[in-house]
Design a protein around this nucleic acid. Structure first.
Lengths: 147, 147
DNA sequence: TCGAAAATGTTGAATGTTCAAGAATTGGGA
DNA sequence: TCCCAATTCTTGAACATTCAACATTTTCGA
């Protein structure tokens, strides 16, 4: 017999809540590491995506770094002011804007990567290799199943 | 031999990124369910915490629903306007403000609970009982280990 | 070929969040 | 007891995000 869903579940038993909580905590820690360079997490993600040297359209970038279009536009404006990235129009589709990383951006990204890596290492230590791997696997599956 | 951390990991292999992605997706779905009642996810959390009928201080509430103080204050202002909750001063410590849920708030919370339950049920279906339970367990451990 | 609809990115106004400072109250040591 | 530091919550200004509307370019069917 299927048991009916219990609507009086405490907050802490909801998957959505656990995800929010874990995300908040991990993100906070990462943020605090990256603050050495005075850079928000999203900018690190942007730099990392652009690190392949290819041009990425604003749309693709927005998708990849989990920001919506207008927010990304304004964040990119700031990064252009800081000479971390630059815009080029796509020759094949002139509606598109392609983003590229600058040398300055590459150098910063390198430093950020190592800060982020040290955070991951710290998690691995406390939480264990096996649990981390398993968690990653489950999260990937959830993302696939949910979207 | 311990392998050195690889700084050139793609974005999608970072735990922080996977968490952000999963959280975003699940939260989006929940938001879309709750939008039937025109209520943001945070307000549902607040109502749920207050559903025990006890008075909760702003500080405790902020902690529980993952908002910082000023943000919570302003959200509570809105909810008071909507007659969902009300403030009372704590008699024992008059610095504190205790929040209570109103009848209107209780009725709304009930409807929201069932919307949220149907989302969880939907996830369970696509993702499986076992994986969901395991994921919840790993997330709880991570939260403990990280904080 | 032409024109309407879709795709892509930006902008400005409305809205929400955050940071720093402030007001009120409590607690604890001199 | 008295005063100063700590706690709790709110406020206002600075800042960031979101929504809707717009401009440009491409696509595709009539």
């Amino acid at each position: 017999m299927a048991k009916p869903p219990n609507p009086n579940t405490p907050l802490t038993e909801h998957l959505a809540y656990l995800l929010a909580q874990a995300n908040r905590e991990i993100n906070r820690q990462l943020e605090s590491r990256l603050s050495t360079e005075g850079v928000p997490v999203e900018q690190w993600r942007i730099l990392k995506v652009l690190s392949d040297g290819e041009g990425h359209s604003m749309g693709d970038l927005a998708e990849a770094v989990l920001l919506n279009h207008p927010t990304l536009t304004k964040m990119i404006d700031r990064m252009v002011s800081d000479s971390l990235v630059y815009r080029r129009q796509d020759a094949h589709d002139r509606r598109k804007v392609l983003m590229f990383i600058s040398d300055r951006g590459k150098a910063l990204c390198k430093r950020l990567n190592s800060l982020a890596a040290s955070q991951e290492a710290h998690i691995l230590e406390n939480y264990g290799d096996k649990a981390t791997g398993e968690l990653k696997r489950l999260l990937e599956n959830l993302i696939d199943a949910a979207s």
